[in-house]
């Protein structure tokens, strides 16, 4: 179970203005501004739930994922993931979760994918028999057989994302955080990724929290949507709650963004 209660987080960033004069001025004096990434964010996600976490760029989605995966320490509030405080005992926590950052790769670029997997086996200290079993299952479900022997750099984006998903599930985590897992994928790959996530959830009861800009992801995967904008939770409900009549989901969400002025 995941609970966030009144979690807030703010950053300080240096302002930089355009122009020659400003550049010279900033040599001597620099202004900072505080950005509130999260303001009193609260929600609870039960075991085995699949939740879509949506919101415009810079709304605080990544900060939330980072806090939940133990990378970021919040300024205030309480965070509990299966009874653990993620940022307090990082190593014990991350053993139990899987994280995929859609824009980055965890696979080594120049060596066959299977070698990266073998390394993860040692990093997570996975026993040989569960490694074998998990790998077989993942290879099967994600259709990786042909890919495992090729170096990551030769894979297409869609193929790579399938491997990334497998990489973050080798240690069989109960919770999976997906940060934009379908970004940049072609239609076929998107379908494959969605199909896999659904199956994984069904077979293993894996809790899934995914951020995305692709509303079809939400439609295909999650019954529940959490909408965040300007660091605040604006809505927490089901797709049916917000859908009116015959609107497509994109129209629905666009209207939602507009109505909350985010």
């Amino acid at each position: 179970m995941i609970t966030m209660e009144n979690v807030s987080k703010s950053y300080k960033v240096a302002k930089r203005n355009a122009g020659f004069g400003e550049a010279v001025k900033s040599l001597f004096h620099r202004e900072y501004e505080t950005i509130h990434a999260l303001k009193n964010v609260s929600f609870t996600i039960g075991d085995g739930e699949m939740v879509g976490y949506i919101g415009p760029n810079g709304a605080g989605k990544s900060s939330t994922i980072k806090i939940l995966s133990g990378i970021l320490t919040p300024d205030g509030g309480t965070v509990l993931v299966d009874g653990r405080v993620p940022y307090k005992d990082r190593i014990r926590h991350v053993k139990e979760i899987g994280v995929v950052f859609g824009q980055r790769s965890q696979l080594w670029w120049d060596i066959p994918v299977i070698d990266s997997f073998e390394l993860l086996k040692d990093i997570y200290s996975i026993s040989p028999q569960s490694y074998k079993q998990n790998l077989e299952e993942l290879t099967d479900l994600l259709d990786l057989k042909e890919l495992l022997r090729s170096p990551t750099r030769q894979l297409s984006l869609g193929q790579r994302m399938r491997c990334e998903l497998a990489a973050s599930l080798l240690h069989d985590p109960k919770i999976l955080f997906l940060d934009e897992p379908t970004i940049g994928l072609d239609a076929v790959s998107k379908l494959a990724v969605r199909e896999f996530i659904r199956k994984r959830n069904k077979l293993h009861g894996t809790t899934v929290l995914l951020t995305t800009h692709d509303m079809q992801d939400i439609e295909a995967l999650s019954d529940r949507i959490i909408l965040i904008g300007k660091g605040e939770i604006l809505m927490d409900g089901t797709l049916d709650d917000i859908k009116k009549g015959n609107e497509t989901i994109d129209e629905t969400v666009a209207e939602l963004y507009r109505s909350f002025d985010v």
Binding site: S69, R90, I91, I97, V99, R104, Q106, I123
Partner: peptide, 17 residues
């Protein structure tokens, strides 16, 4: 590039990684 985030989501000491 943010790959230090990858390090932090692994259950091993950061220095080693």
């Amino acid at each position: 590039t943010g790959s230090f985030d990858q390090v932090l989501v692994r259950p091993r000491n950061e220095v080693l990684q």
